[in-house]
Design a protein around this nucleic acid. Structure first.
Lengths: 296, 296
DNA sequence: CGTGATTACGGTTGACGTAATCATA
DNA sequence: TATGATTACGTCAACCGTAATCACG
């Protein structure tokens, strides 16, 4: 179970071809074949069907392990490199769409005034990508949002020892078209909306899977899938009646043709957390500390 | 960053000696020295101080990554082996002390009546050990307890794709000596007890760290640390006034000289979850399914 | 000095590439 | 028959052990 073999296995499974994977990895076709043979011999099971190439049952299971495993390995290497390398004055911040709040922009303005030499980039990405890239040092800082019970941390994939601290808490609310029968309410219970039409916008709004686990039901089935990270576009779809979405209340208010109704039960908060490595020095750490401080 | 090198590094750090680690791993002193040199060369940093041997700052950081990494690697290998191997009629169940409820014993009795040939072992262990051993197939099934918000899953360390399902929910309550000033209350807010004397019994009662995160305070400082997995002994200490402990209410009731007062805020549940591999066949899967079914 | 880490060196093993072979659409 | 996976084999590097060396207590 050498990591190299796992890497090859993943590539072959993804490409559906030994030769394609070989090209991608800079190996020969033969080497890839030997890698797979070694893995299969080691584990005592056939991992891939050939012609056409597709993972077997055991192979699928191994894939579930292999990805996170290699991610952690990369994260470890990146974390050590970060400790060793000299801190650069270049900071890349990954932000999930709903984490980009006025409060954050203010803190950012403060930093840029006091530290005009720092080269700061803000990059809007999905939650998963942010977590992965913070772990592997492709990002210096991540700002990730989600819903959770009031005193519970967000449920982020575990990719190693990262620091996560809450910086913003907002009320979660349902975005409804203004003419929706429930649009006039002052509060809504989540379970009452389990059978409504929902838009699944996992990279923009709260993923429906989170609503299912928070409400303890298996409703919230998507009527439309929305890919991308643009909040405005999502709300436009909602206004047109394509389906509801859960967002922090401030993100919904003041949008024409959209009403926001807070979720009254279960008790939930929409929270933004700073995510960064445990490194103690460098601009990234300073900025992360400032974000935490601004949160009080 | 070959896993073998990481394994050696961990052993050396733990033993505080190259030669001792070599003996433990079945290598020569020289091979261990070469392993460490290779790791240090690869990562471009000194990981260990020599004479006496102890990890450097970078080394400590690497250790934080290396343990979970190797655990996941072992878990992956064990999971595949479990898929491949023929299911045995031997089941070992790991149970954390507070997960061993009357309901569980009833389900277990049903199973043993319908399947008298199965060789079932119940082993009481700490939560961490159970999770690790279920992942690495040293246990077939784990039953782990903890507190969480009503619709939130327990926060278990991420060691790979395991199935976790709730089987029991109980009210969490504070165990108080009968003569304690608050012993007559019908409900208590957790924050009001943040400054009380608490016993930290992480393997028996709810770990104080969980109370801190659930209450959002940094109180709940231990006045006494209790190691082991015996509930009765812990309650004896509480009765004698050594400190409080949080347990599921049924576990406290009927104990002499101890009152149980439910936690009224924040809203929490004490939940037991079955933990097992995603394997679909074999006695372990059948038993896990029965446990889930009994939970309704 | 002695214990214990490092370095030098050699044998063996394993990894990858080239090229021939095999199998399937 | 052509594309693409497997097998055979040679080369080279990596790994580990033996043994000599070095360094700290």
């Amino acid at each position: 179970m050498d990591p190299h073999l796992l890497r090859t296995f993943i590539a072959v499974a993804r490409c559906g071809s030994f030769s394609e994977a070989a090209r991608e990895l800079g190996y020969t076709q033969s080497a890839v074949s030997q890698h797979i043979a070694a893995l299969e011999g080691d584990l005592g099971a056939v991992l891939l069907q050939r012609r056409p190439v597709s993972p077997t049952g055991v192979g699928v299971r191994l894939l579930e392990h292999a990805g996170p495993l290699l991610l952690r390995l990369d994260a470890a290497r990146a974390d050590i490199a970060r400790l060793t390398a000299a801190p650069a004055a270049r900071i890349v911040i990954g932000v999930s769409p709903l984490a980009l709040t006025p409060q954050l922009t203010r803190t950012l303005a403060d930093i840029r005034r006091t530290q005009p030499l720092w080269d700061v980039t803000v990059r809007v990405l999905s939650r998963e990508v942010i977590t992965r890239q913070v772990a592997t040092a492709a990002l210096d800082i991540g700002l990730v949002d989600g819903v959770a019970a009031p005193n519970d941390p967000l449920h982020l994939p575990d990719v190693g020892p990262l620091t996560a601290t809450a910086v913003t808490e907002q009320r979660p609310a349902v975005a409804l078209p203004a003419q929706h029968p429930l649009a006039g309410r002052t509060g809504l219970r989540l379970v009452d909306l389990a059978d409504a039409r929902w838009i699944d916008a996992p990279d923009t709004a709260i993923p429906l899977a989170q609503l299912r686990s928070a409400s303890g039901t298996d409703g919230f089935r998507p009527s439309l899938r929305y890919e991308g990270t643009d909040v405005r576009g999502l709300l436009t779809l909602t206004a047109a009646g394509h389906g509801l979405a859960l967002l922090p209340q401030p993100a919904i208010e003041g949008i024409p043709a959209i009403n926001s109704v807070p979720v009254s039960a279960p008790r939930l908060v929409h929270r933004t957390e700073v995510l960064h490595s445990n490194a103690v020095d460098g601009p990234a750490a300073v900025l992360a500390a400032a974000l935490r401080r601004a949160a009080g």
